[in-house]
């Protein structure tokens, strides 16, 4: 059993749990995830590790209430236990000295961006963070990200805070701006071919983009960065069962090859990922997920929630 030592509401429907898991905390690295189960008849779901504290033996998990399992999870309180937790799984993020890195987080995707940004900052990268959500109430971890970032921009779909629009739209504007700056600086605008031009500008400005959030957001970000040839890393959130490469339910196509997100990922080059396939596979159990949620909410209404445990 894995005890919840702290529970914190980050936004409507979004909760952060600090969980006692000393062995996992000792090995956890930015970019990795755990798989948890919260009830005896429960499913296994992956959650990214959003922070880890080795000396205290604690890992942080952030979950949004979207289905039955995350709904059940959100009913747990400090002192309660998560019955199964396994990890750290997946490959760790590539942390290098890249130069300027744009960290894009969408919704709960901000949580897994945080440890990566933190590690990149330690390596003396210049961190530009772009965080977005539906509205200002759903924007999470802003103070934490502010500490890590050299520049921080906020976006909201409804315009209630920061830039009115998607993170990908903002990124596009930012890139155009930086490209212009680069053109002026390099004085390269009138000579050479178009491609050379872009490469040169890149080196002077943005060297890498990390984007984590819902699949459509990562798709959009990858489309924005592609013309600029900026290496773009995305962390895929496919359906998983065992998380050890045993079942293959998380398979995606990257660069035309079938890869398993749980062991080959979760991070891949966004320009090589077949997002249409990812989106289709994420929907494989939509009907069943809806049914589970309906039955669960019905039980809650009838005051039988306890019976589930």
């Amino acid at each position: 059993m894995y005890r919840i030592v702290k529970k914190e509401k980050l936004a409507n429907d979004v909760v952060r749990f600090d969980v006692k898991a000393p062995l996992v905390s000792r090995r956890a690295k930015a970019g990795q995830f755990v798989i948890i189960r919260v009830s005896e008849k429960g499913e296994r779901i992956p959650l990214t590790i959003s922070d880890y504290n080795t000396s205290e033996g604690i890992i942080s998990l952030v979950a949004m209430r979207v289905g039955k399992t995350t709904a059940l999870l959100s009913t747990l309180n400090e002192g309660d236990e998560i019955i199964d937790l396994v990890g750290p799984l997946g490959k760790e993020s590539e942390i290098g000295k890249f130069g300027t890195v744009v960290c894009v987080g969408g919704g709960v995707g901000i949580a897994p961006v945080m440890p990566i940004a933190k590690e990149l900052k330690k390596k003396e990268n210049y961190i530009i963070s772009i965080l977005g959500a539906r509205d200002k109430d759903h924007l999470i971890l802003v103070p934490e990200m502010e500490k890590i970032s050299d520049e921080l921009y906020l976006c909201s779909d409804d315009g209630s805070i920061g830039f009115h629009g998607f993170v990908s739209d903002f990124l596009k504007e930012l890139l155009e701006e930086k490209v212009l700056e680069g053109r002026e600086k390099s004085n390269f605008a009138s000579s050479g071919t178009k491609n050379e031009n872009i490469n040169n500008i890149n080196n002077g400005n943005i060297n890498r983009v990390i984007a984590i959030g819902p699949a459509p957001m990562m798709y959009a970000v990858s489309k924005v960065t592609r013309p600029y040839g900026i290496k773009t890393i995305v962390s895929l959130n496919s359906i998983m069962v065992d998380g050890t490469g045993m079942c293959g339910t998380c398979r995606v196509e990257v660069g035309g090859k079938t890869r398993f997100v749980c062991v080959d990922g979760p991070e891949f080059d966004g320009h090589e990922v077949d997002f249409d396939l990812l989106l289709a596979r994420q929907k494989a159990y939509h009907q069943e997920e809806r049914l589970s949620m309906e039955l669960y909410e019905e039980k809650c209404r009838c005051g039988q929630e306890k019976a589930l445990w």
Binding site: V241, C247, R251, A284
Partner: peptide, 15 residues
């Protein structure tokens, strides 16, 4: 082979 509805036996049986 990556269409929805295609399972490895491992996945099908594990589920």
């Amino acid at each position: 082979e990556n269409l929805n509805g295609v399972y490895s036996a491992n996945e099908y049986l594990t589920r």
